[in-house]
Simulated assay, not measured.
Amino acid sequence: MRTALERRRATFLRGHYAEWIALLLLLSKGYRPLARRYAAAGGEIDLIVTRGDTIVFVEVKARGSMEDALSAITATKRRRFSRAARAWLSRHPRAQGRTWRADAVFIAPRRLPRHVMSAFELEVF
Rank of each mutant, 00 (worst) to 15 (best):
M117G: 03
A75K: 14
L13F: 01
T99S: 08
I73R: 06
R79P: 01
L5E: 13
W100V: 14
A18M: 10
I107A: 05
W88Q: 03
S28E: 09
E6Q: 15
V105Y: 05
L89G: 07
R86L: 13
H16K: 15
V116D: 06
F57G: 06
L27S: 01
Y31F: 14
L23V: 03
L23W: 10
R9P: 00
F81S: 04
R51A: 13
A18V: 06
H92K: 10
D103F: 11
H115K: 02
A95M: 11
A22F: 05
T3V: 07
S90F: 02
R80A: 15
A62Y: 09
P113D: 05
T54K: 14
T54N: 01
K77L: 12
L25Y: 07
A10M: 05
L13D: 09
H92V: 08
R36P: 00
E123P: 00
G64H: 01
Y31V: 01
R86A: 15
K61V: 12
M66T: 05
P109E: 11
E121D: 07
L112T: 03
G64L: 06
D68C: 00
A95T: 11
E121P: 11
E121V: 13
A40G: 06
D68E: 15
A108P: 12
R86P: 03
L5V: 09
I48L: 06
I48G: 02
G97H: 04
L34D: 01
S71I: 02
S71G: 09
R111E: 11
T11W: 11
T11L: 14
L25M: 11
F12H: 08
I73C: 04
A102P: 01
R63C: 10
I73N: 07
E44L: 03
I55Y: 09
F12L: 08
R101T: 10
F120A: 12
R80K: 15
F57P: 06
A41P: 06
F81R: 03
L70F: 06
R86H: 02
R111G: 01
P33M: 10
A102F: 04
R78P: 03
E44H: 04
Y31R: 04
A41T: 02
V49T: 08
A102R: 02
R9F: 13
R9V: 10
E44R: 12
I48C: 07
A40R: 07
K77C: 07
A18K: 12
R91A: 15
Q96E: 15
V124T: 13
W100N: 00
W88F: 14
